[in-house]
Design a protein around this nucleic acid. Structure first.
Lengths: 337, 337
DNA sequence: ATCGTTGCTTACAACGTTGTACAAACCAGG
DNA sequence: CCTGGTTTGTACAACGTTGTAAGCAACGAT
């Protein structure tokens, strides 16, 4: 029982286009005509067919947000901000979960939703600049570090600086055997490399020698990986007095492993993370972390996309840096303990 | 630089429809024609316009999942499973964040994505049966408790039984002053009412008198609300020896508040939650909880929707119950401590 | 009276795709 | 060489919407 403009038009005794004009808020429609049409719309419970409208207009009013995994809190929180920011531009957000695999990411970027979305905000793990080059024309904003200086607009946080600051904070607490959890050698590990660079820079600043035994890899950045890496560090006997985890879920896993080992945080081992997810404000102990301004990231991404949609396609891609700050809580407090 | 069927057809020297046939895998196309067309498609990097295809076919291949908030881990985890299950049916999932308000939910159900989606999986908080009745025709599956026996297909877990079981488990630990956190009197609080009913039933089973001072409301079910409710319980002097929180984020907040009050879990106060979110496996202590089979819920919802799309619209709505189990961890362990 | 003007409405075509109906080419058997 | 059936390709219309151009009143100014 779906109705069309034509049905409304017949009922109101006007032409199809007049109904269309009423629906779209066109100015010059006489008040009584408008009223008749609106009555007919209400009676039939008419709602426009968006596929047809999109076909006609070439715009869909939908943008996609592609993230590796929704149940990583950072991405979920980011998604919320993107939905909010997009709503202010009148967009609906289609959230696509890529799983992080190269094949799925390529498909997300080029594939399924094609022609159903006006643009794409993409947080890629595995995608290369070459992959992106194949996507002629899809307006796109990238989040994160993977494809720096690629052919698309870009919103980042200064990972190196942020990692350096939080590591320096651990140094400032008097810690000297500072471990790092989350390094990755795969091509997907761009963020890991940058955060590792910040970590080593801070050590160098403090005149502390880099010790590769204190750097633990993590295949993914989930709680379980953080716990496993921490347990591994503890068994190898390197006995760190602080740990910088490359994201908060790793850090929460590390807290858990330290607890199981009977070590006190921050007294025996200080712990710091990265992302400032909600969990870290309620964990025991609460988590010191780098807090990227997620709302700002989302807002900048949506605005870049909005500009990209109206701008000359030859406009060179822009890279914007979103601010971050340190959120110092119990696991590595602001005063020397 | 977007190409159409017509462009491909000209390049391959065939008609538009023949290209369409190739794209859709139609059988009777000579091998050399097919090869020419495919070459042209590849050269032009042609991809079909889904809006036009949808318009023509009346199907979009997209279903929507509407949830109140993405950064509630339960919904994020559920979303992941829905995306996975839907992919097996060839569907893309548009995830819509309603915020839980009545107005936004009505809009999500009827509005923006209309005619762009084949169906809707909806986890409503504020929606009434009347609201749903207005949505003639949109194939829909509801998750959760709000609109029981409404006009739509439905997937639930047996909240009363589950709450009763976990409360009985606390009783079995020897606890007698068992608090509940998360009650709600608003119409949105359907799940809260059911879980409260299970709680009171379990107390009755054990011959423990119901004490309203042990039942703390929570306006929302976030960590902060759980912490606030727990603090409130502790200040009123009722001194519970166990707490059943109506979901896991409330429980994590409660753990935090207990920790701040210097109380030990589970020795002084046992804590149980509901949802089995990832966090609860790594919190300190780990969280005992009701574990609904989220994968099953997602799969059942997608299948109900698939049936609804092909079935006679007069088929009466079905209600399916997804299984649950107790996940007993440190905060309320399986042996009497 | 005639001529623009302005306000309101309409008819028609087009967006890119696919289903229907049919035509052309092919093949085998008489 | 024709007949009848199958395979392969084409032309046209339609999906529901909106932009364009133009029609038709009613109006004040000439």
């Amino acid at each position: 029982m779906r109705h069309r403009l034509k049905d409304v038009a017949e009922r109101a005794g006007v032409s199809v286009k007049t109904v269309s004009n009423v629906v779209n808020g066109y100015q010059h429609v006489r008040a009584d005509t408008r009223a008749r049409v609106e009555a007919a719309i209400a009676e039939l419970n008419y709602r426009p067919n968006l596929s047809a409208r999109n076909l006609r207009k070439g715009r869909t009013g939908v943008i996609a947000l592609a993230v590796p995994e929704l149940d990583i809190p950072y991405f979920a929180e980011l998604a919320r901000h993107v939905v909010t920011a997009a709503a202010e531009h009148g967009w609906t957000v289609l959230i696509d979960q890529t799983g992080g695999g190269p094949e799925q990411e390529r498909k997300a970027a080029s594939g399924i939703a094609d022609h159903m979305i006006d643009g794409l905000i993409f947080s890629p793990l595995a995608l290369t600049a070459d992959d992106l080059a194949g996507l002629d024309g899809m307006p796109m904003v990238l989040l994160g570090e993977r494809v720096d200086h690629g052919p698309a607009d870009h919103v980042v946080v200064d990972n190196v600086a942020a990692a350096r600051e939080i590591t320096a904070h651990l140094v400032g607490l008097g810690r000297r055997r500072i471990a790092a959890i989350g390094s990755q050698r795969t091509p997907e590990g761009a963020s890991a490399r940058l955060r590792l660079a910040g970590y080593t820079a801070a050590l160098a600043d403090a005149g502390i020698a880099y010790d590769e035994h204190l750097v633990a890899p993590a295949p993914a950045w989930h709680r379980a990986d953080g716990a496993a890496a921490m347990r591994h560090l503890l068994t190898t006997g390197v006995r760190p007095d602080a740990v910088f985890c490359f994201n908060d879920t790793l850090a929460l896993g590390a807290l858990r492993a330290l607890h199981e080992a009977g070590l006190r945080v921050p007294d025996d081992v200080a712990v710091a993370g990265f992302d400032d997810i909600e969990d870290g404000r309620f964990s025991i102990p609460t988590l010191s972390t780098v807090a990227p301004d997620k709302e700002r990231i989302a807002r900048l991404a949506v605005e870049l996309l909005a500009n990209r949609l109206t701008a000359d396609p030859e406009t060179p891609p822009r890279e914007l840096v979103a601010p971050h700050r340190l959120a110092l809580r119990e696991s590595a407090p602001s005063r020397r303990s």
